[in-house]
Design a protein around this nucleic acid. Structure first.
Ligand SMILES: [Mn+2]
Ligand SMILES: [Mn+2]
Ligand SMILES: [Zn+2]
Ligand SMILES: [Zn+2]
Lengths: 137, 137
DNA sequence: TTCTAATTCATAATCATTACGATTTACATT
DNA sequence: AATGTAAATCGTAATGATTATGAATTAGAA
């Protein structure tokens, strides 16, 4: 996902183009790491000192709802990142040192479905945490 | 894990026997569901109206540290449950309707390790959410 | 029974997140 | 280009989970 595509989606749903949204999207575009609301505010405050958490959270919710961002939760905080381009189902290795993210295609959810008759699987979370090669030194 | 074993561990680490701990442990012993700090306080307030969140959280942290409880996070809250008896590595299907938990032995973490040379895997989370057979009707 | 460290209580602080009325702004329409 | 209006943002306060702290209580050893 990139900013251009994001704006197509936003427009298609009747959302207006604003500088704040543009800035938020550009922050996500230039990193593959997960960001928190706090991360965003910290940076946006430089350009917009009056920037409100309400604006951040409301837009994050919109972006997730429209599939522009993906969301997860670790270290007791909500984390967001640009939704992956990759079309096939996959998961992420997340470096707890630098935040870098690596795609992981292994997922046993289909096998699992067969092993749980009577159960309805609505969602699943498979996340791997550790240190990436750079941080391992 | 049961209360008796839990007390062995607590004693072995020099922790004292208190009524609050006994009650907390008994709550976990009699269900296989995940409980939040709020769930616990709600019940403990009946016997101990002055019961403090501090006591709950401090003991939960102790129990997790000693391997008596296991902890996870979903729906934006920390959730706790008695640590499983089962010795082999496994994960959980969690019913989002009734909270029931089912063991799931499928896990691709070892295969994954081989697929991520240079990476150090420190931990991983694999959780499946949905509806159990009873709640599906 | 006495002593002491562990535990709990009572309360406030902190942190992430949400809520809301007032104000401003994007953009469609004239 | 000016106008009207719904959308978006601001400013600020509320909420809810969690953590912190100092005083009071208590379990268990001596
Ligand atoms: Mn990805
Ligand atoms: Mn289990
Ligand atoms: Zn998967
Ligand atoms: Zn596993």
């Amino acid at each position: 996902m990139n900013r251009t595509r994001a704006w197509e989606i936003l427009k298609a749903h009747g959302y207006k183009k604003t500088d704040k949204r543009e800035l938020i999207l550009s922050m996500f575009e230039e990193t593959d790491k997960y960001l928190t609301a706090r991360d965003l505010l910290e940076v946006l405050k430089k350009d917009y000192p009056g920037m409100s958490y309400d604006t951040i959270y409301r837009n994050l919710a919109t972006f997730v709802e429209l599939g522009i961002l993906e969301e997860t939760e670790f270290n007791g905080e909500r984390n967001f990142r640009m939704h992956c381009e990759i079309d096939h189902h996959h998961h992420h290795f997340i470096c707890m040192e630098c935040g870098n993210v690596k795609e992981v295609s292994l997922c046993p959810i289909e096998k699992l479905e067969a092993m749980l008759p009577g159960y309805t699987i609505e969602s699943h979370k498979f996340e791997i945490y550790g240190k990436c090669p750079q941080c391992n030194g």
